[in-house]
Nucleic acid binder design. Structure first.
Lengths: 251, 251
DNA sequence: CTGGAATTGGCAGGTATTTGCAGGAATCTG
DNA sequence: CAGATTCCTGCAAATACCTGCCAATTCCAG
Protein backbone atom coordinates (compact mmCIF):
# COMPACT_ATOMS: atom_id res chain seq x y z
CA UNK A 1 0.00 0.00 0.00
CA UNK A 2 1.19 3.46 -0.88
CA UNK A 3 1.96 5.88 1.88
CA UNK A 4 -0.53 8.56 0.80
CA UNK A 5 -3.24 5.94 0.52
CA UNK A 6 -2.50 4.78 4.01
CA UNK A 7 -2.53 8.28 5.37
CA UNK A 8 -5.75 9.03 3.58
CA UNK A 9 -7.33 6.03 5.26
CA UNK A 10 -6.06 7.13 8.64
CA UNK A 11 -7.61 10.54 8.14
CA UNK A 12 -10.84 8.98 6.99
CA UNK A 13 -11.07 6.74 10.03
CA UNK A 14 -10.22 9.71 12.16
CA UNK A 15 -12.94 11.78 10.60
CA UNK A 16 -15.63 9.18 11.03
CA UNK A 17 -14.63 8.06 14.51
CA UNK A 18 -13.21 11.23 15.95
CA UNK A 19 -10.16 9.39 17.21
CA UNK A 20 -7.84 6.56 16.25
CA UNK A 21 -5.61 4.25 18.25
CA UNK A 22 -2.18 3.21 17.04
CA UNK A 23 -2.91 -0.43 17.82
CA UNK A 24 -6.16 -0.41 15.88
CA UNK A 25 -4.48 1.13 12.88
CA UNK A 26 -1.71 -1.47 13.01
CA UNK A 27 -4.32 -4.20 12.86
CA UNK A 28 -6.56 -2.55 10.30
CA UNK A 29 -3.87 -1.43 7.90
CA UNK A 30 -1.51 -4.34 8.36
CA UNK A 31 1.71 -2.39 8.80
CA UNK A 32 4.11 -2.06 11.67
CA UNK A 33 3.56 0.19 14.61
CA UNK A 34 6.48 2.36 13.57
CA UNK A 35 5.02 3.07 10.19
CA UNK A 36 1.77 4.17 11.79
CA UNK A 37 3.68 6.38 14.17
CA UNK A 38 5.62 7.94 11.35
CA UNK A 39 2.42 8.59 9.44
CA UNK A 40 0.81 10.14 12.46
CA UNK A 41 3.82 12.33 13.06
CA UNK A 42 3.79 13.49 9.48
CA UNK A 43 0.07 14.17 9.46
CA UNK A 44 0.39 15.97 12.76
CA UNK A 45 3.11 18.24 11.44
CA UNK A 46 0.85 18.99 8.49
CA UNK A 47 -1.75 20.03 11.00
CA UNK A 48 -4.24 17.40 9.89
CA UNK A 49 -4.51 15.69 13.24
CA UNK A 50 -3.25 15.94 16.78
CA UNK A 51 -1.21 13.17 18.32
CA UNK A 52 -2.06 11.98 21.77
CA UNK A 53 -0.70 9.19 23.88
CA UNK A 54 -1.93 6.00 22.26
CA UNK A 55 -3.21 7.45 19.02
CA UNK A 56 -4.50 10.67 17.54
CA UNK A 57 -7.52 12.92 17.61
CA UNK A 58 -8.92 15.18 14.94
CA UNK A 59 -7.14 18.50 14.72
CA UNK A 60 -9.77 21.09 15.17
CA UNK A 61 -9.41 24.60 13.96
CA UNK A 62 -12.60 25.12 15.89
CA UNK A 63 -12.70 26.43 19.44
CA UNK A 64 -12.36 24.03 22.28
CA UNK A 65 -15.97 24.26 23.45
CA UNK A 66 -17.32 23.38 20.03
CA UNK A 67 -14.95 20.46 19.58
CA UNK A 68 -15.89 19.22 23.01
CA UNK A 69 -19.61 19.29 22.25
CA UNK A 70 -18.90 17.45 19.07
CA UNK A 71 -17.02 14.69 20.87
CA UNK A 72 -19.93 14.08 23.22
CA UNK A 73 -21.82 10.89 22.26
CA UNK A 74 -20.03 10.85 18.99
CA UNK A 75 -20.92 7.27 18.07
CA UNK A 76 -24.61 7.88 18.61
CA UNK A 77 -24.47 11.04 16.55
CA UNK A 78 -22.59 9.24 13.79
CA UNK A 79 -25.20 6.48 13.73
CA UNK A 80 -28.03 8.97 13.40
CA UNK A 81 -26.14 10.87 10.73
CA UNK A 82 -25.61 7.66 8.79
CA UNK A 83 -29.36 7.05 8.73
CA UNK A 84 -29.84 10.58 7.50
CA UNK A 85 -27.56 10.02 4.51
CA UNK A 86 -30.07 7.51 3.15
CA UNK A 87 -32.38 10.40 2.43
CA UNK A 88 -29.83 12.16 0.28
CA UNK A 89 -30.36 11.39 -3.40
CA UNK A 90 -28.88 12.67 -6.62
CA UNK A 91 -30.26 15.91 -7.93
CA UNK A 92 -31.47 17.18 -4.57
CA UNK A 93 -31.12 20.61 -3.02
CA UNK A 94 -30.61 20.10 0.69
CA UNK A 95 -30.30 22.40 3.66
CA UNK A 96 -28.10 21.28 6.52
CA UNK A 97 -27.48 23.18 9.71
CA UNK A 98 -24.32 23.29 11.78
CA UNK A 99 -25.43 21.11 14.66
CA UNK A 100 -22.90 18.68 16.06
CA UNK A 101 -25.06 15.77 14.96
CA UNK A 102 -25.61 17.09 11.46
CA UNK A 103 -21.87 17.61 11.16
CA UNK A 104 -21.40 13.85 11.27
CA UNK A 105 -23.25 13.51 7.97
CA UNK A 106 -20.38 14.65 5.78
CA UNK A 107 -17.94 11.82 6.59
CA UNK A 108 -20.60 9.27 5.65
CA UNK A 109 -21.00 10.82 2.21
CA UNK A 110 -17.37 10.23 1.29
CA UNK A 111 -17.92 6.87 -0.31
CA UNK A 112 -21.14 7.73 -2.11
CA UNK A 113 -21.10 8.61 -5.78
CA UNK A 114 -23.19 11.73 -5.77
CA UNK A 115 -24.23 13.77 -8.75
CA UNK A 116 -25.74 17.16 -8.94
CA UNK A 117 -26.41 17.47 -5.23
CA UNK A 118 -26.34 20.95 -3.72
CA UNK A 119 -26.15 21.62 -0.03
CA UNK A 120 -26.85 25.01 1.42
CA UNK A 121 -25.72 25.73 4.96
CA UNK A 122 -25.06 28.56 7.35
CA UNK A 123 -22.25 26.70 9.05
CA UNK A 124 -18.66 27.28 7.93
CA UNK A 125 -17.63 24.02 9.59
CA UNK A 126 -20.22 22.11 7.62
CA UNK A 127 -19.18 23.88 4.42
CA UNK A 128 -15.60 22.86 4.96
CA UNK A 129 -16.48 19.21 5.64
CA UNK A 130 -18.66 19.07 2.58
CA UNK A 131 -15.98 20.59 0.38
CA UNK A 132 -14.26 17.20 0.40
CA UNK A 133 -17.22 15.38 -1.09
CA UNK A 134 -17.07 14.88 -4.84
CA UNK A 135 -20.16 15.61 -6.89
CA UNK A 136 -21.58 17.94 -4.32
CA UNK A 137 -21.88 21.69 -4.58
CA UNK A 138 -21.85 23.79 -1.45
CA UNK A 139 -23.58 27.10 -0.96
CA UNK A 140 -22.65 28.98 2.16
CA UNK A 141 -24.89 31.55 3.75
CA UNK A 142 -23.26 34.69 5.06
CA UNK A 143 -23.86 36.70 8.18
CA UNK A 144 -22.58 37.58 11.59
CA UNK A 145 -20.80 34.60 13.11
CA UNK A 146 -22.15 33.25 16.38
CA UNK A 147 -18.93 32.15 18.00
CA UNK A 148 -20.00 29.23 20.13
CA UNK A 149 -22.33 27.72 17.57
CA UNK A 150 -20.12 28.54 14.60
CA UNK A 151 -22.95 29.55 12.35
CA UNK A 152 -23.64 32.68 10.34
CA UNK A 153 -26.85 34.50 11.17
CA UNK A 154 -28.54 37.83 10.64
CA UNK A 155 -30.85 39.62 8.24
CA UNK A 156 -28.67 38.76 5.28
CA UNK A 157 -28.77 35.07 6.07
CA UNK A 158 -32.53 35.21 6.34
CA UNK A 159 -32.98 37.02 3.11
CA UNK A 160 -30.66 34.71 1.23
CA UNK A 161 -32.28 31.70 2.86
CA UNK A 162 -35.72 32.71 1.69
CA UNK A 163 -34.70 32.23 -1.92
CA UNK A 164 -34.06 28.51 -1.60
CA UNK A 165 -36.67 25.77 -2.03
CA UNK A 166 -34.88 22.70 -0.70
CA UNK A 167 -36.09 19.19 -1.34
CA UNK A 168 -34.94 18.31 2.15
CA UNK A 169 -33.81 20.05 5.31
CA UNK A 170 -31.62 18.17 7.77
CA UNK A 171 -31.43 19.87 11.16
CA UNK A 172 -30.32 19.06 14.67
CA UNK A 173 -32.71 20.04 17.46
CA UNK A 174 -31.99 20.74 21.11
CA UNK A 175 -35.46 19.76 22.11
CA UNK A 176 -38.16 17.60 20.54
CA UNK A 177 -41.62 17.27 21.98
CA UNK A 178 -45.14 16.63 20.76
CA UNK A 179 -46.44 19.99 21.86
CA UNK A 180 -43.53 22.28 20.93
CA UNK A 181 -42.14 20.31 18.01
CA UNK A 182 -38.43 20.87 17.34
CA UNK A 183 -36.78 23.61 19.37
CA UNK A 184 -33.33 25.17 19.74
CA UNK A 185 -31.62 27.50 22.19
CA UNK A 186 -30.63 30.33 19.88
CA UNK A 187 -33.23 32.65 18.43
CA UNK A 188 -31.01 33.74 15.59
CA UNK A 189 -30.21 30.18 14.65
CA UNK A 190 -33.90 29.30 14.84
CA UNK A 191 -34.82 32.10 12.45
CA UNK A 192 -32.55 30.73 9.74
CA UNK A 193 -33.62 27.14 10.24
CA UNK A 194 -37.28 28.09 10.22
CA UNK A 195 -36.85 29.95 6.99
CA UNK A 196 -35.49 26.84 5.33
CA UNK A 197 -37.91 24.42 6.89
CA UNK A 198 -40.89 26.47 5.78
CA UNK A 199 -39.75 26.24 2.19
CA UNK A 200 -38.61 22.61 2.29
CA UNK A 201 -40.53 19.79 0.70
CA UNK A 202 -39.46 17.52 3.56
CA UNK A 203 -37.74 18.04 6.88
CA UNK A 204 -35.60 15.58 8.79
CA UNK A 205 -34.84 16.26 12.45
CA UNK A 206 -31.91 14.67 14.25
CA UNK A 207 -32.33 14.43 18.02
CA UNK A 208 -30.69 12.04 20.46
CA UNK A 209 -32.87 10.35 23.07
CA UNK A 210 -31.86 12.96 25.68
CA UNK A 211 -33.54 15.64 23.57
CA UNK A 212 -36.87 13.85 23.34
CA UNK A 213 -39.41 15.47 25.60
CA UNK A 214 -37.20 18.49 26.20
CA UNK A 215 -38.31 21.92 25.07
CA UNK A 216 -35.80 24.64 24.25
CA UNK A 217 -36.58 28.33 23.83
CA UNK A 218 -37.20 28.73 20.13
CA UNK A 219 -39.32 26.57 17.89
CA UNK A 220 -37.90 25.73 14.49
CA UNK A 221 -40.72 23.45 13.35
CA UNK A 222 -44.05 22.26 14.64
CA UNK A 223 -44.68 18.53 14.64
CA UNK A 224 -46.63 18.52 11.40
CA UNK A 225 -43.85 20.36 9.60
CA UNK A 226 -41.47 17.50 10.30
CA UNK A 227 -41.37 14.50 7.97
CA UNK A 228 -38.82 12.32 9.75
CA UNK A 229 -37.30 12.15 13.19
CA UNK A 230 -34.07 10.23 13.62
CA UNK A 231 -33.09 9.38 17.17
CA UNK A 232 -30.66 6.97 18.80
CA UNK A 233 -32.64 4.98 21.33
CA UNK A 234 -36.18 3.77 21.40
CA UNK A 235 -37.37 5.77 24.33
CA UNK A 236 -40.99 6.65 24.84
CA UNK A 237 -41.93 7.49 21.32
CA UNK A 238 -45.64 7.13 21.83
CA UNK A 239 -45.59 10.89 22.19
CA UNK A 240 -45.56 11.14 18.47
CA UNK A 241 -48.20 8.55 17.76
CA UNK A 242 -50.85 10.96 16.66
CA UNK A 243 -48.74 12.78 14.10
CA UNK A 244 -47.85 11.64 10.63
CA UNK A 245 -44.21 11.87 11.62
CA UNK A 246 -42.00 8.90 10.76
CA UNK A 247 -39.73 8.06 13.68
CA UNK A 248 -36.53 6.19 12.95
CA UNK A 249 -34.43 4.85 15.82
CA UNK A 250 -30.89 3.56 15.38
CA UNK A 251 -29.91 0.75 17.66
CA UNK B 1 3.63 0.51 -28.19
CA UNK B 2 3.63 4.22 -28.75
CA UNK B 3 4.16 6.64 -25.92
CA UNK B 4 0.85 8.51 -26.15
CA UNK B 5 -1.06 5.23 -26.20
CA UNK B 6 0.83 4.02 -23.17
CA UNK B 7 0.21 7.20 -21.25
CA UNK B 8 -3.44 7.05 -22.15
CA UNK B 9 -3.61 3.57 -20.69
CA UNK B 10 -1.85 4.69 -17.54
CA UNK B 11 -4.40 7.43 -17.06
CA UNK B 12 -7.20 4.97 -17.71
CA UNK B 13 -5.94 2.55 -15.11
CA UNK B 14 -5.42 5.42 -12.76
CA UNK B 15 -8.96 6.56 -13.22
CA UNK B 16 -10.49 3.16 -12.65
CA UNK B 17 -8.32 2.22 -9.69
CA UNK B 18 -7.56 5.56 -8.14
CA UNK B 19 -3.90 4.65 -7.91
CA UNK B 20 -1.26 2.79 -9.87
CA UNK B 21 1.98 1.11 -8.88
CA UNK B 22 5.09 1.37 -11.02
CA UNK B 23 5.67 -2.37 -10.77
CA UNK B 24 2.13 -3.19 -11.89
CA UNK B 25 2.44 -0.92 -14.88
CA UNK B 26 5.74 -2.54 -15.84
CA UNK B 27 4.05 -5.92 -15.87
CA UNK B 28 0.84 -4.82 -17.52
CA UNK B 29 2.34 -2.69 -20.24
CA UNK B 30 5.45 -4.76 -20.83
CA UNK B 31 7.94 -1.94 -20.81
CA UNK B 32 10.85 -1.13 -18.56
CA UNK B 33 10.54 0.56 -15.23
CA UNK B 34 12.36 3.60 -16.55
CA UNK B 35 9.86 4.14 -19.29
CA UNK B 36 7.04 4.03 -16.81
CA UNK B 37 8.83 6.51 -14.60
CA UNK B 38 9.40 8.85 -17.50
CA UNK B 39 5.75 8.64 -18.42
CA UNK B 40 4.68 9.31 -14.88
CA UNK B 41 7.02 12.25 -14.61
CA UNK B 42 5.68 13.70 -17.81
CA UNK B 43 2.06 13.19 -16.82
CA UNK B 44 2.75 14.64 -13.41
CA UNK B 45 4.29 17.78 -14.82
CA UNK B 46 1.21 18.11 -17.01
CA UNK B 47 -0.83 17.98 -13.82
CA UNK B 48 -2.72 14.85 -14.83
CA UNK B 49 -1.60 12.82 -11.85
CA UNK B 50 0.44 13.08 -8.71
CA UNK B 51 3.53 10.97 -8.25
CA UNK B 52 4.08 9.30 -4.94
CA UNK B 53 6.70 6.89 -3.73
CA UNK B 54 5.90 3.59 -5.46
CA UNK B 55 3.49 4.86 -8.05
CA UNK B 56 0.99 7.61 -8.63
CA UNK B 57 -2.46 8.72 -7.57
CA UNK B 58 -5.10 10.59 -9.55
CA UNK B 59 -4.70 14.34 -9.37
CA UNK B 60 -8.38 14.85 -8.75
CA UNK B 61 -8.40 12.61 -5.70
CA UNK B 62 -5.50 14.31 -3.97
CA UNK B 63 -7.12 14.81 -0.62
CA UNK B 64 -6.60 17.78 1.61
CA UNK B 65 -5.03 19.85 -1.14
CA UNK B 66 -5.79 22.98 0.80
CA UNK B 67 -4.10 21.68 3.93
CA UNK B 68 -1.07 20.79 1.85
CA UNK B 69 -0.81 24.25 0.35
CA UNK B 70 -1.20 25.68 3.79
CA UNK B 71 1.68 23.64 5.06
CA UNK B 72 4.05 24.86 2.37
CA UNK B 73 6.53 27.43 3.70
CA UNK B 74 4.50 27.68 6.83
CA UNK B 75 7.18 29.43 8.89
CA UNK B 76 7.66 32.14 6.30
CA UNK B 77 3.93 32.63 6.04
CA UNK B 78 3.62 32.85 9.81
CA UNK B 79 6.37 35.46 9.96
CA UNK B 80 4.65 37.60 7.36
CA UNK B 81 1.33 37.17 9.12
CA UNK B 82 2.87 38.27 12.39
CA UNK B 83 4.02 41.51 10.79
CA UNK B 84 0.53 42.02 9.47
CA UNK B 85 -0.99 41.79 12.94
CA UNK B 86 0.81 45.01 13.88
CA UNK B 87 -1.56 46.85 11.59
CA UNK B 88 -4.61 45.59 13.42
CA UNK B 89 -5.82 48.12 15.97
CA UNK B 90 -8.85 48.40 18.21
CA UNK B 91 -11.99 49.71 16.62
CA UNK B 92 -11.07 48.72 13.08
CA UNK B 93 -13.17 47.06 10.42
CA UNK B 94 -10.86 44.74 8.52
CA UNK B 95 -11.27 42.52 5.47
CA UNK B 96 -9.20 39.35 5.35
CA UNK B 97 -9.20 36.84 2.52
CA UNK B 98 -8.76 33.08 2.74
CA UNK B 99 -5.22 32.85 1.41
CA UNK B 100 -2.92 30.38 3.10
CA UNK B 101 -0.71 33.23 4.26
CA UNK B 102 -3.55 35.34 5.60
CA UNK B 103 -4.82 32.30 7.49
CA UNK B 104 -1.71 32.46 9.66
CA UNK B 105 -2.82 35.82 11.01
CA UNK B 106 -5.46 34.46 13.38
CA UNK B 107 -3.10 32.44 15.62
CA UNK B 108 -1.01 35.55 16.24
CA UNK B 109 -4.02 37.47 17.46
CA UNK B 110 -4.66 35.03 20.29
CA UNK B 111 -2.65 36.89 22.87
CA UNK B 112 -3.72 40.38 21.88
CA UNK B 113 -6.39 42.16 23.88
CA UNK B 114 -8.62 43.40 21.12
CA UNK B 115 -11.71 45.49 21.48
CA UNK B 116 -14.36 46.28 19.01
CA UNK B 117 -12.54 44.81 16.03
CA UNK B 118 -14.64 43.40 13.22
CA UNK B 119 -13.27 41.16 10.51
CA UNK B 120 -15.21 40.41 7.37
CA UNK B 121 -14.11 37.48 5.24
CA UNK B 122 -15.31 35.20 2.49
CA UNK B 123 -13.37 32.25 3.85
CA UNK B 124 -15.10 29.80 6.19
CA UNK B 125 -11.72 28.58 7.39
CA UNK B 126 -10.69 32.09 8.31
CA UNK B 127 -14.02 32.64 10.04
CA UNK B 128 -13.46 29.55 12.17
CA UNK B 129 -9.94 30.55 13.15
CA UNK B 130 -11.08 34.02 14.09
CA UNK B 131 -13.95 32.72 16.17
CA UNK B 132 -11.42 31.90 18.86
CA UNK B 133 -10.21 35.46 19.24
CA UNK B 134 -11.82 37.38 22.06
CA UNK B 135 -12.96 40.91 21.38
CA UNK B 136 -13.28 40.29 17.70
CA UNK B 137 -16.48 40.04 15.74
CA UNK B 138 -16.58 38.00 12.56
CA UNK B 139 -18.77 38.62 9.56
CA UNK B 140 -18.81 35.86 7.01
CA UNK B 141 -19.73 36.46 3.39
CA UNK B 142 -21.92 33.87 1.72
CA UNK B 143 -21.85 32.38 -1.73
CA UNK B 144 -20.98 29.35 -3.79
CA UNK B 145 -18.02 27.56 -2.26
CA UNK B 146 -14.92 27.17 -4.43
CA UNK B 147 -13.71 23.82 -3.21
CA UNK B 148 -9.98 24.06 -3.63
CA UNK B 149 -9.69 27.61 -2.38
CA UNK B 150 -12.31 27.20 0.32
CA UNK B 151 -13.84 30.59 -0.24
CA UNK B 152 -17.39 31.71 -0.93
CA UNK B 153 -17.93 33.65 -4.15
CA UNK B 154 -20.70 34.81 -6.42
CA UNK B 155 -23.02 37.74 -7.00
CA UNK B 156 -24.25 37.64 -3.42
CA UNK B 157 -20.74 37.90 -2.06
CA UNK B 158 -20.06 40.86 -4.28
CA UNK B 159 -23.20 42.67 -3.32
CA UNK B 160 -22.66 42.12 0.36
CA UNK B 161 -19.03 43.10 0.03
CA UNK B 162 -19.90 46.41 -1.56
CA UNK B 163 -21.58 47.56 1.62
CA UNK B 164 -18.42 47.46 3.73
CA UNK B 165 -15.94 50.30 4.11
CA UNK B 166 -13.00 48.59 5.81
CA UNK B 167 -10.19 50.50 7.45
CA UNK B 168 -7.83 47.85 6.23
CA UNK B 169 -7.80 44.94 3.79
CA UNK B 170 -5.32 42.11 4.33
CA UNK B 171 -4.98 39.90 1.26
CA UNK B 172 -2.63 37.24 -0.05
CA UNK B 173 -1.55 37.59 -3.68
CA UNK B 174 -0.30 34.92 -6.11
CA UNK B 175 1.65 37.45 -8.07
CA UNK B 176 3.07 40.86 -7.30
CA UNK B 177 4.73 43.04 -9.87
CA UNK B 178 5.23 46.74 -10.53
CA UNK B 179 3.26 46.72 -13.75
CA UNK B 180 0.37 44.42 -12.86
CA UNK B 181 0.19 45.10 -9.14
CA UNK B 182 -1.27 42.29 -7.04
CA UNK B 183 -2.78 39.40 -9.01
CA UNK B 184 -4.47 36.08 -8.23
CA UNK B 185 -5.41 32.97 -10.22
CA UNK B 186 -9.16 32.90 -9.68
CA UNK B 187 -11.39 35.46 -11.31
CA UNK B 188 -14.19 34.94 -8.86
CA UNK B 189 -11.89 35.35 -5.91
CA UNK B 190 -10.42 38.46 -7.50
CA UNK B 191 -13.84 40.05 -7.88
CA UNK B 192 -14.54 39.81 -4.16
CA UNK B 193 -11.10 41.02 -3.14
CA UNK B 194 -11.26 43.92 -5.57
CA UNK B 195 -14.61 44.98 -4.18
CA UNK B 196 -13.12 45.24 -0.71
CA UNK B 197 -9.86 46.83 -1.73
CA UNK B 198 -11.64 49.55 -3.65
CA UNK B 199 -13.55 50.54 -0.55
CA UNK B 200 -10.68 50.12 1.89
CA UNK B 201 -8.84 53.02 3.44
CA UNK B 202 -5.63 50.99 3.32
CA UNK B 203 -4.60 47.70 1.74
CA UNK B 204 -1.93 45.31 2.92
CA UNK B 205 -0.70 42.63 0.53
CA UNK B 206 1.07 39.49 1.71
CA UNK B 207 3.33 37.88 -0.88
CA UNK B 208 6.28 35.58 -0.34
CA UNK B 209 9.47 36.28 -2.29
CA UNK B 210 8.53 33.65 -4.88
CA UNK B 211 5.49 35.72 -5.81
CA UNK B 212 7.44 38.91 -6.44
CA UNK B 213 7.76 39.57 -10.16
CA UNK B 214 5.17 36.93 -11.00
CA UNK B 215 1.94 37.91 -12.69
CA UNK B 216 -1.22 35.82 -12.26
CA UNK B 217 -4.35 36.09 -14.37
CA UNK B 218 -6.54 38.52 -12.44
CA UNK B 219 -5.57 41.83 -10.92
CA UNK B 220 -6.91 42.57 -7.47
CA UNK B 221 -5.12 45.89 -6.96
CA UNK B 222 -2.88 48.17 -8.93
CA UNK B 223 0.32 49.31 -7.28
CA UNK B 224 -1.05 52.65 -6.13
CA UNK B 225 -4.01 50.98 -4.48
CA UNK B 226 -1.68 49.08 -2.17
CA UNK B 227 -0.43 50.72 1.01
CA UNK B 228 1.85 47.99 2.35
CA UNK B 229 3.55 44.92 0.94
CA UNK B 230 4.81 42.31 3.38
CA UNK B 231 7.23 39.75 1.98
CA UNK B 232 9.62 37.26 3.49
CA UNK B 233 12.97 37.85 1.86
CA UNK B 234 14.67 40.95 0.60
CA UNK B 235 14.75 40.11 -3.05
CA UNK B 236 15.01 42.73 -5.75
CA UNK B 237 12.57 45.21 -4.37
CA UNK B 238 13.81 48.14 -6.44
CA UNK B 239 10.88 47.31 -8.69
CA UNK B 240 8.66 49.19 -6.31
CA UNK B 241 10.92 52.20 -5.78
CA UNK B 242 8.81 54.62 -7.72
CA UNK B 243 5.57 53.91 -5.94
CA UNK B 244 4.49 55.17 -2.56
CA UNK B 245 4.17 51.57 -1.48
CA UNK B 246 5.81 50.65 1.83
CA UNK B 247 7.65 47.36 1.54
CA UNK B 248 8.25 45.34 4.70
CA UNK B 249 10.51 42.31 4.61
CA UNK B 250 10.68 39.80 7.45
CA UNK B 251 14.09 38.28 8.01
C1' DC C 1 18.03 6.28 -51.30
C1' DT C 2 21.09 7.77 -47.55
C1' DG C 3 23.29 9.90 -43.66
C1' DG C 4 22.62 12.37 -39.57
C1' DA C 5 19.76 14.46 -36.04
C1' DA C 6 16.09 13.66 -32.87
C1' DT C 7 13.30 10.86 -30.22
C1' DT C 8 12.50 6.82 -27.60
C1' DG C 9 13.39 2.86 -24.74
C1' DG C 10 16.63 0.15 -21.93
C1' DC C 11 20.70 -0.44 -18.76
C1' DA C 12 24.02 0.52 -15.03
C1' DG C 13 25.40 2.88 -11.10
C1' DG C 14 24.76 5.58 -7.21
C1' DT C 15 21.46 8.00 -4.16
C1' DA C 16 17.32 8.58 -1.52
C1' DT C 17 13.22 6.86 0.76
C1' DT C 18 10.67 3.73 3.17
C1' DT C 19 10.04 0.17 6.38
C1' DG C 20 10.77 -2.82 10.28
C1' DC C 21 13.48 -4.00 14.34
C1' DA C 22 15.82 -3.41 18.77
C1' DG C 23 16.93 -0.80 22.69
C1' DG C 24 16.14 2.51 26.00
C1' DA C 25 13.48 6.71 27.48
C1' DA C 26 9.15 8.66 28.54
C1' DT C 27 4.39 8.39 29.98
C1' DC C 28 0.26 6.56 31.83
C1' DT C 29 -2.47 3.90 35.42
C1' DG C 30 -3.65 1.87 39.51
C1' DC D 1 5.91 4.28 42.94
C1' DA D 2 5.98 0.24 40.13
C1' DG D 3 4.42 -2.30 36.21
C1' DA D 4 2.82 -1.80 31.77
C1' DT D 5 2.31 0.44 27.82
C1' DT D 6 3.64 3.75 24.55
C1' DC D 7 7.06 6.49 22.34
C1' DC D 8 11.41 7.75 20.22
C1' DT D 9 16.25 7.07 18.22
C1' DG D 10 19.55 4.79 15.56
C1' DC D 11 20.39 1.17 12.38
C1' DA D 12 20.05 -2.06 8.50
C1' DA D 13 17.67 -4.16 4.56
C1' DA D 14 14.75 -3.60 0.83
C1' DT D 15 12.86 -0.99 -2.39
C1' DA D 16 12.24 2.99 -5.23
C1' DC D 17 14.28 6.78 -7.62
C1' DC D 18 17.35 9.53 -10.57
C1' DT D 19 21.32 10.59 -13.75
C1' DG D 20 24.06 9.70 -17.48
C1' DC D 21 24.95 6.77 -21.20
C1' DC D 22 24.02 3.73 -25.22
C1' DA D 23 21.20 1.18 -28.80
C1' DA D 24 17.25 1.20 -31.76
C1' DT D 25 13.97 3.52 -34.32
C1' DT D 26 11.98 7.40 -36.75
C1' DC D 27 12.17 11.46 -39.33
C1' DC D 28 13.83 14.57 -42.57
C1' DA D 29 16.88 17.00 -45.77
C1' DG D 30 19.80 16.43 -49.36
Amino acid sequence: MLAPERQKQILQKLQSRGQVLVQNLVRELGVSEDTIRRDLKELASAGLLKKVHGGAIAASTVPYAHAERRRLNREAKAAMALKATQFIQNGMLIFMDGGTTTLEVAPHLKGRSLENVTVVTHSPVMAQSLSEIAGLEVFLLGGKLIKDLLIAVGPNSLKEASRFRPDLSIVSAHGMSAAAGATVESGEDAAVKRQFIENSAETLVLAGHEKIGFVASFQIASLDEISYLITDEVKDLSLFNHSNLTVIACE
